[in-house]
């Protein structure tokens, strides 16, 4: 049965500004279906983004939305979650937004394991500003700032998130819209920081410089590099340079969430913070 996206969209802002065939639209749709799966009331959602093509997403969604500064979406989101723990806080970021300028905010949000869902749309480039290379541009690939080919190794955003302390981490690509929906839904259900990386095509900027300037060939390039996580375990780092490992990297709900168990390795930040706030308020009364 057809999905009623209209329910969640500011229809006067549609068609969106993304290029024909841009992967961000596919990820946004998976995200909206996940909201429906959760049965959330629109008023209970806070949808936050930074700057970039990806970060234009909140403009199209009819709920509480916040379009912030480049790289700082997670900081604003953390503030919202601490002030209003009952809100479902969702962040949409590009690979540059989340792991270049916002890299520090990213690792510390993971470390805090705060109950926020981050969807990173990884298109291997800075789409909005003209296709500069990003921390996820594979070695050998061209960008407007690496015209003879990139020599920097990449971040694997999923491994980075896991190492920094995020308790749900998964990756799927725009070729598998249903899989994206499944992981984002699981991220929403998950208590603690969840990171879902959606590998997407930016044929306009990244593709044009790397012989795949149309959406179909850019999507095929992604498809040809997908490797399920179980298979990737036996491969060497260099073999995995431009591969896209899909699947769930970690899914560990924090068991202990209260102040008494603050030292538990995986705790949920919002509740721990709430306890401190209650403690401080109780002391103020004396």
């Amino acid at each position: 049965m057809a999905f009623e996206y209209e329910k969640y969209l500011r229809m006067d802002k549609i068609p969106h500004l993304w290029c024909p065939g841009c992967g961000i639209g596919v990820v946004l749709k998976a995200m909206l279906r996940s909201v429906e799966n959760m049965g959330w009331d629109k008023n209970d959602i806070a949808f936050v983004s930074g700057i970039g093509c990806t970060s234009r997403a909140p403009g199209y969604i009819d709920c509480n939305t916040l379009h912030t500064t480049h790289g700082r979406a997670l900081s604003f989101a953390t503030g919202i979650k601490l002030a209003q723990p009952a809100k479902h806080v969702v962040v949409f970021s590009g690979d540059g937004d989340a792991t270049a300028i916002g890299g520090n905010h990213f690792i510390h949000a993971c470390r805090r394991n705060i109950d926020i869902t981050l969807v990173v749309v990884n298109n291997n480039t800075y789409g909005m500003t003209g296709g500069q290379h990003s921390p996820t541009t594979p070695i050998g690939y061209k960008a407007s700032t690496t015209i003879y080919g990139n020599i920097d190794p990449t971040f694997d955003i999923c491994l980075l998130a896991k190492a920094a302390g995020a308790s749900y981490v998964a990756r799927a690509t725009v070729n598998k819209g249903k899989m994206l929906e499944k992981y984002i839904t699981k991220g929403f259900e998950h208590k603690g920081f969840s990171v879902i990386v959606a590998t997407a095509n930016c044929h306009t900027q990244f593709g044009r410089k790397n012989k795949m300037s149309d959406p179909i060939s850019a999507r095929k390039w992604i498809e040809s590099r997908e490797i399920p996580i179980d298979k990737a375990r036996n491969m060497k780092a260099l073999e995995l340079n431009d591969k896209i490992i899909t699947g769930e990297f970690i899914s560990e709900e924090p068991e202990q969430t209260y102040w008494e168990n603050y030292n538990h390795p995986i705790h949920e930040y919002t509740e721990a913070y709430q306890r401190i706030r209650e403690k401080a308020q109780a002391q103020d009364k004396h």
Partner: peptide, 15 residues
């Protein structure tokens, strides 16, 4: 439903 799910522009509905 593959076309409905993968159209980036909300243009297809399959009932």
């Amino acid at each position: 439903m593959l076309c409905e799910i993968h159209c980036p522009d909300f243009c297809i509905k399959i009932y």
